[in-house]
Design a protein around this nucleic acid. Structure first.
Length: 514
RNA sequence: GCGAGCGUAGCUCAGUGGUAGAGCUCCACCUUGCCAAGGUGGUUGUCGAGAGUUCGAAUCUCUUCGCUCGCUCCA
């Protein structure tokens, strides 16, 4: 997908998100801080709706999944067991001359087989040709006399003789430094190493660590799942693309425990289930993709992993990963903690550590995807029944003659921040206002509603379009003088129907409820 | 993290050393009997932050923070 084919630019979207109160830069009055975002009055409703739809689909609409809310800071040994303390870092090194940065584990070195004083030539993994050339040109040697070794196996003393991948001079590379992507803090008032703790980089480990307690309290039979929604923190090197890669973000994770050997069928099941969910909340099939990891792209303990991707304006990017993790996590925790984390399968009379399928989704990424997908700029014909609605041309703000522009967020109704706007036709006619206020109070008991009496009625419709409110209900003189009916106006078609107030709640419920 | 560009009202932006501006938005009143941009009046800024040069800085210099793009990274 080319960026210029997309129906919205990130600039236009970010502008609307700020103007209407979806997303703000965090602590903006102090200049902001890279990788952290705040959700405004509309954004928080949007996110809540995403989480509610997920939570409902997991824990309410099925009886084999229960919820959990574990703490953000856990015992540091949780992260030893999970491998995050050991592996959750990428040693990096810089070239002082070219200012390039490399991942140490991806750099290899041509080393002379016998002469330990000879120069060493670094190269990118799998691409030794430039280094072989340098062997001939710079060292006047033969390629046969050299052998490739991993950079991490080269002693630091030898770095003075090491020629970087993009230079011909030795000694320009810094020593590799570990970049731990977990946020570190201290428990208790004293900052000493024995008090170190981490903000969780994922919510999943809280589920594994409480596996035993959950099993012994809810009497669940395999297969069953434990779901959790919560904040996670990763000290990303370079947050980019608006809220897409943030340092503080929210995850919705399910650990679905299964009998060993049934991994691939349950993995496929959850990929299909999750794709159905995305369609239900308003991400169309045409913009969704699967990325099936194979070979080296798979973690060593995983038997399958499929990413669910979405076409963003800045490229096709991951919303969710669905991994078949075997029994790696529970086994690790059992070994590290010394506590049994086995499941007694009464059907097969066996004890075993269950395998797990993990659908792990990012709430903020889904919110961003929904905003990108929902955003539309349209040119609509002036006057009644005037013909076809056009998609606005990118960058052209004024509509052509006979048309007028409208910006609309076409959220799925279950996702929209406000569900219904209640509008008196005129604000200076007391009976209209009184009736509208009463209806607003009535409907607010069931849905997030918006009351607006300011400006012309058409203008108020457009305001609701821009924040994605699916329905507008207008109170006019027929309502109060004649038959107690109201006008219900649809956001997407802009069509209006007349309904008795008595039928209103039922009508709204059919459209809105997840 | 490196390089380049950019930070002025809620949004989009003009303003190259001399009293901070425009359009839209927003608010009030009027008008408005169903799809915005009629009328009148009004609010809003430490010109991203800090320091320096200068009689005087939005404007010049330095530092810093943030944003965008490219490289890098994305378990």
């Amino acid at each position: 997908m080319k960026a210029n084919d997309y129906h919205v630019t990130m600039d236009a979207l970010a502008s609307l998100c700020k103007r209407r109160g979806f997303i703000f830069q965090t602590s903006e009055i102090y200049g902001g801080i890279n990788g952290f975002w705040d959700y405004g009055p509309l954004g928080v409703e949007l996110k809540r709706n995403i989480k509610d739809c997920w939570w409902k689909s997991m824990t309410q609409l099925r009886e084999d999944i229960v919820g959990l809310d574990s703490s953000i800071i856990m015992h540091p040994r949780v992260w030893e067991a999970s491998g995050h303390v050991g592996n959750f870092k990428d040693p990096m090194l810089d070239c002082r001359e070219t200012k390039s940065r490399y991942r140490a584990d991806q750099i290899f070195v041509l080393k002379h087989k016998t002469d330990s004083d000879a120069l060493l030539f670094a190269f990118h993994e799998g691409a030794p040709a430039p280094a072989e050339k340098k062997v001939k040109k710079v060292a006047k040697g033969k390629a046969e006399d050299y052998e490739p070794v991993a950079l991490l196996d080269i002693p630091l003393e030898a770095y003075a003789k090491l020629v970087g991948p993009d230079t011909n001079e030795p000694g320009t590379l810094t020593e590799p430094r570990a970049f731990n992507l977990m946020f570190k803090t201290f428990v208790g008032p004293v900052e000493e190493s024995s008090n170190v703790a981490y903000l969780r980089p994922e919510t999943a480990q809280g589920i594994f660590a409480q596996f035993g307690n959950v099993c012994s309290t809810v009497r669940n039979k395999i297969p069953f799942g434990i779901a959790q929604i919560g904040k996670a923190f990763r000290n990303e090197i370079n947050p980019r693309n608006y809220t897409f890669r943030s340092r503080e973000f929210e995850q919705m994770e399910l650990e679905f425990f299964i009998r060993p050997g049934t991994d691939s069928e349950w993995h496929e099941y959850w990929v299909a289930e999750r794709l159905k969910w995305y369609e239900k909340v308003g991400l169309p099939e045409g913009r969704m993709h699967r990325d099936v990891h194979e070979g080296d792209a798979l973690a060593h303990y995983a038997s399958a992993c499929t990413d669910i991707l979405f076409d963003f304006p800045f490229g096709t990017q991951e919303l969710e990963g669905i991994a078949a993790r075997g029994n790696f996590d529970l086994t690790q925790h059992q070994e590290t903690s010394g506590k049994k984390l086995e499941y007694h399968d009464e059907e097969t009379k066996e004890r075993y550590i269950p395998h797990v399928i993990e659908p792990s989704a990012g709430v903020d990424r889904i919110a961003l995807a929904l905003l990108c997908e929902a955003y539309r700029e349209e040119w609509i014909p002036k006057g009644k029944d005037g013909g076809e609605v056009l998609t606005a041309e990118a960058g052209v703000q004024r509509a052509p003659e006979g048309y007028e522009a409208r910006t609309v967020l076409r959220f799925a109704p279950c996702i929209a921040p406000y569900k219904v706007a209640i509008l008196p036709l005129l604000k200076n006619k007391e009976p209209l206002v009184e009736k509208a206020r009463g209806l607003y109070e009535q409907l607010s008991k069931r849905w997030k509603c918006f009351y607006d009496q300011t400006g012309a009625i058409g203008r108020r419709y457009r305001r609701q379009d821009e924040i994605g409110t699916p329905l507008c209900v207008t109170i006019d003189f027929d309502t109060i003088e004649k038959d107690d009916t109201v006008t219900v106006r649809d956001r997407d078609t802009m069509e209006q129907i007349r309904l008795p107030i008595a039928e209103l709640e039922n009508h709204i419920s059919n459209i809105i409820d997840f």
